[in-house]
Amino acid sequence: MWTAILLACAGCYLLKLAGLSLPQRVLAHPTVERVADLIPVALLAALVAVQVVSDGRSLTVDARVLGLGFAVVALLLRAPFLVVVVGAAVVAALARLV
């Protein structure tokens, strides 16, 4: 685990430094820029899906879906990040109590 963590830390720093150091023409290739720009969107969406309706090896629906439902409503109401995250946790925890 430590190896993966330290490698990822070093890599993330180098990605930041590269951005400040690389010549501007790297961005000149529109396909490269579009792909790089869409990667976070795809990965974050996939992370949401996998976190909420899977337990690692199979798909399952449980209280986490209600938590995500709360998060959607809170985000639509422009609630702050902490309210979104804590609220989702509280909703899921309450649903498990019922």
């Binding site: 190896t3 993966a4 963590i5 990605l15 951005g19 400040l20 996998v50 337990d55 690692g56 090896r57």
Partner: peptide, 28 residues
């Protein structure tokens, strides 16, 4: 948390980190 290998986690973290490269190119 989902039971993935640490290196899969590191790879996902790095792919998300490429976003900061774009910011750097814009900010430099």
């Amino acid at each position: 948390a989902a039971g993935g290998a640490p290196m899969s986690g590191a790879a996902t973290a790095l792919l998300l980190g490429t976003r900061n490269t774009l910011y750097g190119l814009r900010m430099a």
